[in-house]
Design a protein around this nucleic acid. Structure first.
Length: 171
DNA sequence: TCAGTGATTAGG
DNA sequence: CTAATCACTGAG
C-alpha cells in the first residue's frame, strides 16, 4: 500500500459532524519504537459534540481530563474506561468548541478498547498532535468508501434524544 | 447476563 | 477524604 497524504490542520478544525463521516476509509499510521510504521484503515467512528451533546464528556464543562477537547482540532483525547481500556479520540473544531471523534475500530481491530491495545495507544498519547507527531497521524489514501451511519453505542445515560442521534459512522 | 478494574469526578 | 460512575470486553 502506497503512503497517503497526511491530513492537515484544516481537516480537523471543522465541525465534528463534518469531520467524523470523512474518517472511515482514512488510514491511521502508527510508528513503533523500532522505527517501523503500520497503517490501519479506520472502519468505525462516533461524533461527540460537547457544546450541546449530553453524551459528550465536555458537556459538563472543562475539567483536567476534558481540557484537550477545548483546543483546536487535530489533538488526541485519550482516557481510560472501566480501569482497563484506553479510548482514542480525535479532537475536532475550533478553539473553545469542545468536540471529538471516538475511533471505535480500525481494520483488523474492531472495538475501541481492542484497537488501542493492539496499536499501543495509552495515556502518553494524550494531547498528541496528529498534524506534527512523528509517532501517530492520519493519511488520506485517495480512496472513497460508502459510509453508513447509525446511533452511538454505550451512552444509555445520555437520554433518548442524544442516544438516538445517528452520529456513529462506519464502513 | 455480568464481573473486572482503576482513573476521574462531585461532594462532604 | 469517600463513593459513584464509566463512549468496554470476554467469559459463561
Amino acid at each position: 500500500m502506497d503512503s497517503g497524504r497526511r491530513l492537515s490542520r484544516d481537516f480537523y478544525t471543522r465541525d465534528v459532524l463534518e469531520v467524523a463521516p470523512e474518517l472511515p476509509g482514512k488510514y491511521m499510521v502508527v510508528r513503533l519504537k523500532d522505527g517501523t510504521t503500520s497503517r490501519y484503515k479506520v472502519t468505525e467512528v462516533e461524533a461527540y459534540r460537547g457544546s450541546e451533546d449530553k453524551a459528550c464528556h465536555a458537556f459538563k464543562g472543562r475539567t483536567a481530563r476534558t481540557e484537550i477537547m477545548f483546543h483546536d482540532g487535530g489533538r488526541l483525547y485519550i482516557y481510560l474506561i472501566y480501569g482497563m481500556y484506553w479510548m482514542l479520540n480525535i479532537v475536532t473544531g475550533e478553539n473553545n468548541n469542545p468536540q471529538a471523534v471516538l475511533v471505535r475500530g480500525v481494520e483488523n481491530w474492531p472495538g475501541p478498547g481492542k484497537l488501542t491495545k493492539n496499536l499501543g495507544i495509552d495515556k502518553s498519547y494524550y494531547g498528541e498532535d496528529l498534524v506534527f507527531s512523528d509517532r501517530i497521524w492520519v493519511e488520506d489514501c485517495g480512496l472513497s468508501y460508502e459510509v453508513k451511519n447509525g446511533p452511538r453505542i454505550g451512552i444509555e445515560y445520555a437520554g433518548e434524544y442524544w442516544k438516538s442521534r445517528p452520529w456513529r459512522y462506519y464502513i
